[in-house]
Simulated scan of single mutants.
Amino acid sequence: MTWLVTGGAGYIGSHVVRALTAAGLGAVVIDDLSSGHPGFVPDDVPFVRASILDAEAVRHALTGHAVDGVIHVAGFKYAGVSVERPLHTYTQNVTGTVTLLQQMAETGVDKIVFSSSAAVYGAPDVDLVTEDTPKQPASPYGESKLVAEWLLADQAKARDSFVHTSLRYFNVVGSGHPRLYDTSPHNLFPIVFDTLLAGGTPTIFGDDYDTPDGTNVRDYVHVADLAAAHVVAATRLAAGRAVEPAYNLGSGDGSSVREIMTAMARATKIDFTPAIGARRPGDPDRIVANGDLAARDLDWTMRHDLLDMVTSAWQARQAATEAPRPAAQ
């Protein structure tokens, strides 16, 4: 069985590709390299360099490699930037998904695992987010992910054979392979690593929240655990087993920003005391997702603790520092 991984040259997608091949499944990648890297795709995995907005390229990827299903990871993933670029966000995440679904329908591919986001919940006033928590996205990014979930649900009503599930998660960190690391300029781990490597001091934005140590508590999951859950979801769809429309891939307890900084100092062996800055508007005290449904159906579990997450991310980042940094093209 072969799966097309959209966005398979990106940080998360490339881990999904390796999880597929490790499970003995075939993988094909389509990626426009707007934020991905060709070096993240294994040499023996077919790679179609194109946007999912390109219907002909999507069709070629599906039919040229006898694809059985799709793991849809591609998308514009920057929530903050999406506020400034809403039309771009909707084009990439909604129109792109429409194009993908159209080509799947025309080529008879009827299975999809969608890499969604906990951004569909916005900033809920609950300590533990479940799949039933009201969907109130706070950015065009979160809205676009929710619309894409609606598209899957509507397509399932229109196509009897069409099966799908969506995986929602907050912050993805760590590395499952020394060649793969997070290159996003907007994510916490790369920001802290780059600051430390430049000799600077990382900043915690607010230390007076209603949490045990006064700093925000957020959900962090290891990218290898996340990738494994995508593969289990895919194999469950392929086997015709029942799935929920959506699953939270959550830790259930979360980590505070101060705990992350402490783990950063330990993993990097760079002794630092983070600076304390002002709170950022709208930052809630705590957002953590419950992963019980995914544990029941997708073998979801937190196989890596916070130090594992930080250490693996740091090791991959150091390896990247010693080698030429892959350029998004």
Rank of each mutant, 00 (worst) to 15 (best):
G7Q: 00
Y11M: 02
S14P: 03
V16I: 08
V17M: 07
A22K: 15
G24L: 09
A27Q: 06
V29D: 00
D31M: 00
D31W: 02
S34N: 10
H37R: 04
D44Q: 11
V48G: 01
S51C: 02
L53W: 04
D54L: 00
A57S: 03
A66M: 04
V67G: 03
D68E: 14
D68H: 12
G69K: 02
V70S: 07
G75H: 04
Y78T: 10
V81L: 15
S82N: 13
R85C: 11
H88D: 14
T89M: 06
T89N: 12
Q92F: 01
N93I: 08
N93P: 07
V94C: 07
G96L: 07
G96P: 00
T99I: 10
T99P: 00
E106R: 09
T107G: 00
S116G: 07
G122A: 09
G122K: 03
A123P: 06
D132N: 10
K135G: 09
Q136I: 15
P137I: 08
P140M: 13
G142K: 06
E149G: 03
L152W: 00
L152D: 02
K157F: 10
A158E: 12
H164P: 01
R168E: 03
N171M: 13
V173H: 14
V173Y: 15
G176M: 05
H177Q: 08
H177F: 05
R179G: 12
T183N: 05
H186A: 13
L188C: 08
P190W: 04
I191W: 04
F193W: 10
L196Q: 06
L197N: 04
A198R: 13
G199P: 04
T201L: 12
P202R: 10
G206F: 09
D207S: 15
D208P: 03
Y220I: 12
H222P: 13
H222M: 14
A224Y: 06
A224H: 06
A227V: 01
H230Q: 06
T235W: 01
R236L: 04
G240T: 01
R241Q: 14
R258Q: 14
T262C: 05
A263W: 02
D271P: 01
I276F: 10
I276A: 13
A278Y: 07
G282M: 08
I287D: 07
N290P: 06
D292Y: 06
L293G: 10
L298S: 00
L298G: 03
T301Q: 15
M302S: 15
M302W: 09
H304I: 09
L307V: 15
M309W: 10
W314M: 07
W314Y: 11
W314A: 05
R317I: 09
T321A: 15
A327E: 10
